[in-house]
């Protein structure tokens, strides 16, 4: 397995960033990523990202919440310790709606949050990218592009990034 290195290029505008990405993709590099202080419109298409699984996670969790909410109330109030309130109909009781709804929301919300953390593999305070001092601007005001290449291609790709308009090119150090 030949060692992979990551090369970073800083671009002055979104158009230049996307142009560089498309050129790199045309020359066979697909392990690309952008870094920006705010979400870039259209980056999903340029990077050819698959659809995010987050909506399915949220939907499934909401369903689990609702179903378990109904089952919980039914088992606790009608089976395990039946509470007969004025002989009103028991199953399904309209009085279950609030708790069922809240549980659906609670599960959906928490699984979105923790699902995102799992997708990002957070917490991850260390990332090799943070070794590059100039990369700090990625969360402030700069647009960066990263491309993973084989070790022997580093210099050619660096030159190409510059040719494609990079104001600055950095090589990410190997993981210590």
């Amino acid at each position: 397995m030949s060692a992979e290195r990551v090369v970073l290029g800083k671009y002055p505008s979104v158009d230049a960033l996307y142009g560089a990405a498309r050129a790199l993709q045309a020359s066979g590099h697909s392990a690309l990523d952008f870094y920006s202080p705010y979400p870039l419109p259209g980056s999903d298409e340029v990077l050819k990202l698959r659809r995010s699984p987050v909506p399915f996670v949220a939907g499934a969790a909401a369903l689990v919440g609702v179903v378990s909410g109904v089952l919980m109330q039914w088992w606790m109030n009608d089976v395990d310790y039946a509470i007969n309130v004025a002989n009103r109909s028991v199953v399904p009781s309209p009085t279950w709606m609030p708790v069922t709804f809240e549980l659906g929301v609670l599960l959906a919300g928490t699984s979105i949050f923790f699902g995102l953390m799992a997708l990002f593999r957070f917490p991850r305070p260390y990332d090799p990218l943070f070794e590059v001092e100039a990369f700090r601007s990625a969360t402030i005001d700069a647009l960066w592009l990263s491309v993973a290449v084989k070790a022997e291609q580093v210099s050619t790709v660096s030159d190409e990034l510059r040719r494609l308009g990079a104001a600055e090119v950095e090589l990410v150090p190997e993981e210590a």
Partner: peptide
Amino acid sequence: ALGWKGSSRHWQHY
């Protein structure tokens, strides 16, 4: 910050 780096791959899910 948990290691946020502003990656577009993260922004998509985010």
